[in-house]
Design a protein around this nucleic acid. Structure first.
Lengths: 141, 141
DNA sequence: GTAATTGCAAATACTTTGCCACGTA
DNA sequence: TACGTGGCAAAGTATTTGCAATTAC
């Protein structure tokens, strides 16, 4: 059930992206990360730091987002966060407003029914949602 | 049940803020707006445009946020959004990823139970959440 | 009178683009 | 070869701060 980097790359290739070192390393890094990462974090991560420029990572993320492979999240910080769009991955987060730690919420997401209702009543298409909980974590309290 | 600007100002004064023209106009503007507004939107709004500098609006919002009178939202744009923190106001939004329109979701928010559960199981304090739905609005589709 | 508030200008932070060289198919 | 991709540097957009002047209390 675990998806591999190679499968991800195949998916990228089918949408027209080329297999480059930077793409491989970026996908690996995103796949390993338990939480969304910022452009800066990605560009400075071990696999990418000496590998390529921040602009390259930016443009890769842009392409991946356009093809629905990566999603850009707000998460309240000034910087945007990026995460792979995979079935079975958590997409709700619990964020400490003091130290900024981000962890996925383990429980099932309770908004699907509402999302369905919105789809029906408003006529919006391609709906998805973003849900974050903010608070002070036990360590900071 | 409608809260007035004067009541808001009273609330500000009790937390130590001074009654200034800029504060009054900012609160009025936020109170009138059916949706969160960015710093730029606020600074350029009719009541504030000729009244004060953007830095002033910024610092006011900062103070109001510190005192729990205003909340800063992500909403996916590069700019942050601000909204008054009032009982009975909607806090979930439906956002068009094409034209950027933002409207409050009318239905009841279904995440309170989960929020309560997170409070109990994780020990996070002062919890609140942010929920947004993204999609293509009927006009853009 | 005193401390909070403001305006202006400058500094930061993060993102995005231009242009030409390079690598993949 | 052809076109997507990459590096570097610069521009763009939004936020944040320093400091002296002003204003509310």
């Amino acid at each position: 059930m675990e998806i591999t980097v190679n499968e991800l790359i195949d998916r990228c290739r089918t949408v027209g992206l080329r297999r480059t070192k930077a793409l491989e390393q970026l996908l690996s890094t995103l796949l390993e990360s338990p939480r969304p990462m910022t452009l800066a974090e990605l560009a400075e991560s071990p696999l990418l730091a000496d590998q390529c420029d921040k602009a390259t990572v930016f443009r890769l993320l842009q392409r991946l987002e356009n093809h629905g492979i990566v999603r850009r999240l707000g998460l309240h910080e000034r910087a945007a966060y990026f995460t792979l769009l995979l079935h079975g991955r958590h997409h709700d987060y619990l964020i400490c407003t003091r130290c900024g730690s981000i962890e996925p919420v383990k429980a099932a997401c309770p908004v699907h029914a509402l999302e369905e209702e919105i789809r029906k009543t408003t006529g919006y298409r391609d709906l998805y949602h973003e849900l974050e909980f903010f608070g002070t974590c036990p360590t900071c309290a």
